[in-house]
Amino acid sequence: MIRRICRWTVIILILLFLYLPILILAVYSFTDATNIGAIRGFSVHNYVTLFTTPELRDMIFGTVVLAVGSAVIATILGTMGAIGAFYSRKGMASAITTMNQVPVVNADVVTGFSICILLVVVLGISKDTYIPLVAGHVTLCAPFVFLAVIPKLKQMDQSIYEAALDLGAAPFTALIRIVIPQIFPGIISGFAMAVTLSLDDYFVATYTKPATFDTISTYVVNATKGAQTNIKTALWALSTVIFLLVVLFSLVMNIRANREN
């Protein structure tokens, strides 16, 4: 009995630590209050500000487009890389795997800074072309797609591909119709990973983005250094919206996973 109480105490305390700040902010996002702790009436003006201020709308839209765009490129590159490395000679495969590991273990500050130096300082590519930003985000995400796809290739039954070739399929056809469907769950989870990494990134974006463009992270960080109050509280609304979206996404994923089992 005491054991059970202890267990639940640990679970609940850590849940509170992780969620209380977000939930309190969510409650306050529906009021006129400009500080946590002040008691004010119900209001949705933060949500109105969030969705009607062009600056905020553009920033959210830009972040999503960047995340999906870089995730698509990263998924194509990473998947091709994983298939290529898996069927290459050992030397080539381990060279690719080792290089792939660098952005994974590296600090994002270092990744962002080094890409900025190469592309912007050495090669002189203007940040306004968005090339450094997209290249940076693809570099951040593609290795994780690679890592998500490799295990699926290992689990795959290799003889089916050979059978398809023996039955007269061209290698490329066999790849598209046999290999890709079998590793598809890995590709999807790699893509999801890429999207979340890009959405969460601050460092690569700060070092490579055009001065006029902001992602949610760079915008929020700058906003905390003294922005107008209405923007500050509108970000509470944004935090609540994102929280709800993540909950919804997790629920859908969980239901889907349960159905598969």
Binding site: Y19, L25, V220, W236
Partner: peptide, 21 residues
């Protein structure tokens, strides 16, 4: 899943929440 979910909420927004508290 509930304990892992915060990973997917933008970190700058989560730190903002903590900062206000």
């Amino acid at each position: 899943l509930i304990f892992i979910m915060p990973m997917w909420i933008n970190f700058s927004l989560r730190i903002t929440a903590l900062k206000e508290i």
